[in-house]
Design a protein around this nucleic acid. Structure first.
Lengths: 194, 194
DNA sequence: TATGCATGCAAGTGCTTGCTTGCATAATAT
DNA sequence: ATATTATGCAAGCAAGCACTTGCATGCATA
């Protein structure tokens, strides 16, 4: 294990705790314990607690405008939507602190709420463009409303992500492999030209 | 406006604030101000802050096992799913405090998390039963996987509910009328026998 | 060897939180 | 009329919070 910088240790501890207890429930004392660092050290590295979150948000902001940018259009609707679901899921997992704080505590962090809004916007347009292309190719039906379908698909992925985080302890969450092979597959099959 | 009992005023104030600021962000001082009641009065009516929430959870629990019980099967898939979406939405609106605290702060309230899990379970089975019946009637396709379709529909409604609450200030939320006439309609149309 | 930097440690500060207490007052029920 | 009940009010308490400060210590660099 590579030696972690103090900054990194603090951010890792903060992230761990924020997932479990939320931002408000994450105290600087607990961050210090978890990071194996003195509490005062935290404030030598970060002006205040909020600044730790802001650093994490900045990482997210660096990524969000590029997500799905290198998406590979396969020509098959099922494959494509499964890829999109994967990209969405990986992005959310990678930025789960921002995602969860945004969903849970955006009333405290308008900035996080605003930042998070970019996600559905980007994915809806990604999916919608894909649908339009596939309609032209004759892969999917011409008579569908691409706006509604794209919104539905993103809502489904969003719902699944929130559901997974909220209920992961309860074994109710759908494993990603099943979500793709069953749920996404079922959704995609309906769009296919027949 | 009918004179509200002190209990009711406190619960109403708590609910208002919990929606805006979450449970942790709802202080007894603010509850008192909002309810127009002295802070000490709160503790004469409720053992502690948590008990206020518990009262609200009990109301939810009284309802959740009966939701959708009097659902009227119309025979038309679009109509039926629109009705289900309505029932889901009304239930969530009516119990939004439990819904939101459950989504946001279930790590603090395992009881709320557990209580909330009943919702998707109930709706999935409601929708699935409906699908099975409609397949027998020839209204919807026989070759669909009713489990996946029901899960997708509930995920979509859940996602939309969370999304609406999180982003209602940002004008990004989908109005319920559009959600029904466009999103639900698109979903349902795919299931129909052709 | 000397200098600077990052950290630990211990103490503490001011604020907010949930919650309590004792007493005065007014309305309500008997 | 008397007793009971509900409330307001003011003060306060213990705990937890984010954050600060001063000093000692070790480590790396010059």
């Amino acid at each position: 294990m590579a030696a972690q910088s103090t900054d990194a240790k603090i951010i890792a501890a903060f992230s761990d705790l924020a997932l479990k207890y939320g931002y408000q429930g994450t105290t600087t004392k607990k961050i210090a314990e978890t990071a194996g660092v003195n509490e005062s050290t935290i404030f030598r590295h970060f002006k205040d607690k909020r600044t730790i979150l802001e650093r994490i948000i900045n990482d997210y902001l660096d990524d969000v405008d590029q997500v799905g940018q290198n998406f590979q259009h396969s020509g098959d609707i099922v494959t494509d939507l499964q890829r999109v679901a994967d990209i969405y899921n990986e992005f959310v997992q990678h930025h789960k602190v921002v995602f969860l704080v945004g969903v849970r505590e955006s009333y405290q962090f308008p900035e996080v709420g605003k930042a998070l809004q970019k996600l559905p916007v980007r994915f809806v347009s990604l999916v919608k463009n894909n649908f339009t292309k596939m309609q032209a190719e004759g892969e999917i039906r011409a008579d569908i409303d691409t706006d509604s379908e794209a919104a539905n698909f993103v809502l489904m992925n969003f719902g699944n992500a929130v559901f997974t985080f909220s209920y992961q302890t309860a074994k109710m969450a759908i494993p990603m492999t099943s979500f793709k092979s069953e749920n996404v597959q079922a959704f995609a099959a309906h769009l296919k030209t027949h």
